[in-house]
Simulated assay, not measured.
Amino acid sequence: MAGKKPSEDFGRWFGSNLAGIFLQIQDIALKDIEEIRLRIERPLLILGHHRELFIDEQGRTVAAEKGYRVQREDVLQALERMTQSSLYAAEEEMKQGFITLPGGHRVGITGEAIMKQGEVQTLKHISALNIRLAKAVEGKAELILPRLLTKEGTLHHTLILSPPRAGKTTLLRDLIRRLSDGSPALNLPGQTVGVVDERRELAGMWQGVPAYNLGCRTDILDGCPKRMGINMLIRSMAPQVVAVDELGHPEDVEAVLDALRTGVKILSTAHAATMSEALRRPTLKALFEFGVFERVVVLSRRQGPGTVEEIIVLAPTDRVHKEMVRGDAL
């Protein structure tokens, strides 16, 4: 917000107690915060790059037993602000265990699950919030994109694998932007990219306006399940590339296969620390067995989020060749 310090802008999601604490934090810059954990009757915990910090009422880093004890009111006030005082309107997202804030920040939620016919209907008696702060870091794509392009400058079907907090969404955003805008230096013409932003993290849409720059030729379908959104975009916007985050649902397989039949390129991410781990997940294993992906980028946090461990080239014969790259953080 104009005229406000970053800490004041950041504090708008919290009640007065927590907002006051964040105004006083000295030991870690707000821009370096990756997660904030609020657990009722447990100390306030902040996670940054390679470290976790327990924070007291004066915003100081302390031992866990001296940290500020999060109160039920702190959690409820934060949830009220994050849902704009309308928990009912956020129920559909909460059924999945999270809500998404403007800017693409995701808030994980735990509590008592209310079930009906084997399905989660909502959560009540909320016990904890995990605020994961989304960040736009441009320039990451430039280092690996040459390995993901054909000689003609088109994208190989690409999957980005990483464990949580290892930078896969950040890298996906930057790849989308670069593909959309094009790059003469890479012999890459700008391409129409369709983004199905099911979890509202990639674009950070707010009232139809994206918080992140995803390029000048990108169309975004916000909050729509991938199984429906991929086909909707192909029919309505004729993308050359379809980008989605976090493949994993069985219905994603058919949606991706349908997209391939139209000739579009697939760019996606999934949770897995290694290729062998990915092959143990039924949905991903099915996609590999169908020969969907031609390139797999494996990320880690070894040298910070976005460390490229390897780029795997999948040949049509299913022979896997690993092209090792330096383990540098992008």
Rank of each mutant, 00 (worst) to 15 (best):
V296C: 03
L287N: 00
K151E: 14
N213D: 10
R147M: 15
R69H: 12
A238C: 15
Q77W: 12
E310D: 12
G194V: 02
L159V: 02
V62Q: 05
H157Y: 06
T150N: 13
P305N: 04
L188S: 07
G229F: 02
E277W: 09
K31G: 10
N17T: 07
R165L: 11
L179T: 04
N17R: 13
V297C: 00
E277Y: 09
V62L: 08
P146H: 08
G306M: 01
P250C: 06
K151S: 14
L233R: 00
R165Y: 11
L87A: 09
I176N: 03
P163D: 02
A2H: 14
C224I: 00
L123A: 00
I55M: 09
T317N: 15
H271I: 00
L299F: 09
D222A: 03
V298I: 12
G204F: 02
M82P: 12
L267I: 00
R147Y: 15
E201R: 07
I312P: 08
R227C: 10
V196D: 02
I230Y: 09
V308E: 10
R173P: 05
D318A: 15
T274R: 09
Q71R: 14
L87R: 13
L129H: 10
L188N: 09
E198A: 10
A203E: 06
L330V: 02
A203R: 06
E65C: 11
L233P: 01
E246Q: 05
G190C: 03
L175K: 01
E92L: 08
V107T: 01
P184I: 03
A255T: 04
V70M: 07
H125W: 15
T154Q: 14
T100P: 13
Q117K: 14
V298N: 08
R12S: 12
T192N: 14
T83V: 08
